[in-house]
């Protein structure tokens, strides 16, 4: 039902917002993590009012992350070296419209031009630049950056390849991103690009909040703010269950 309303809204608002060449909306304003949460699909709908290629990028909040390398020492494998990167998004995924003729890729120049635009706009894994303040050689840096991407892909937080964008008509499109069950919480940014031959024609930005709600959120908040009381509740529960267990055993 809500999806239908969104579709309707997008379709109706498109002619009014003529100044913008691309308009998008989400099927839901937030990803709610409840006790039963087991991953979710984030659906996005949009309308394109000018010719060009559509690309959608979703980026989670940035964190400092440490990539460590295991090496063999005295017969055991231990983390011996590491690099700290300052601006790694906790989640990243992107979708790119496939245009007829992409496969043939006869037009090498057009392909190169597109790649430059993608790289400049931060679309695709190659376009991500992880910064570090540490003093490391370019070779090592490359190895660690590659490892970072591999690790994140293994966790399902970086994509293996671009997601598809489906067109229901010439102008109306949709795409969806899978949000895994162990996704970090925070404000996620979704940018939709309309890309011309050599430049980005228009960008539309929207946000989605990924967060725990309800019981789950209350526990998390309580544990963060009142660690002592939270710990006491845990201990009291354990004591009660221990007593109960003893009580049951005496009756058996």
């Amino acid at each position: 039902m809500r999806i239908f309303l969104v579709v309707l809204m997008v379709l109706l608002s498109a002619p009014v917002m003529a100044q913008s060449a691309v308009t998008v909306d989400l099927a839901q304003e937030s990803i709610d993590i409840t006790t039963g949460f087991n991953g979710a699909d984030l659906k996005l709908f949009g309308v394109r009012d000018a010719p060009g290629r559509i690309a959608v990028v979703i980026t989670g909040p940035q964190r400092e992350m440490v990539v460590r390398r295991k090496q063999r020492i005295f017969g055991v494998w231990a983390n011996l070296s590491g690099i700290k990167f300052d601006n790694v998004p906790v989640y990243y995924d992107f979708a790119l419209e496939q245009v007829d003729g992409d496969e043939e890729s006869e037009d090498v120049e057009a392909r190169a031009a597109l790649n430059i635009v993608l790289a400049q706009s931060g679309i695709g894994l190659e376009a991500l630049h992880f910064e570090t303040e540490e003093n490391v050689g370019p070779d090592d840096l490359k190895v660690f950056q590659g490892a970072l991407i591999r690790n994140k892909q293994a966790e399902g937080r970086f994509p293996e390849a671009a997601a598809d964008i489906t067109f229901m008509s010439d102008t109306f499109f949709k795409t969806s991103f899978y949000i895994p069950a162990d996704v970090p919480t925070g404000e996620y940014q979704i940018k939709t690009y309309l890309i011309g031959k050599t430049s980005v024609k228009d960008v539309s930005t929207t946000n989605v909040r990924v967060g725990q709600v309800g019981f789950s959120a209350e526990i998390y908040g309580f544990a963060k703010e009142n660690g002592l009381w939270y710990g006491l509740v845990c201990v009291m529960f354990a004591i009660f269950m221990g007593w109960l267990s003893d009580f049951i055993r005496r009756r058996l």
């Binding site: 440490v66 990539v67 460590r68 295991k70 055991v76 494998w77 591999r150 690790n151 970090p184």
Partner: peptide
Amino acid sequence: FMMPDELFSTVVR
């Protein structure tokens, strides 16, 4: 003791 499949690991600082 065994060589891991992936030598690198990433954690949030």
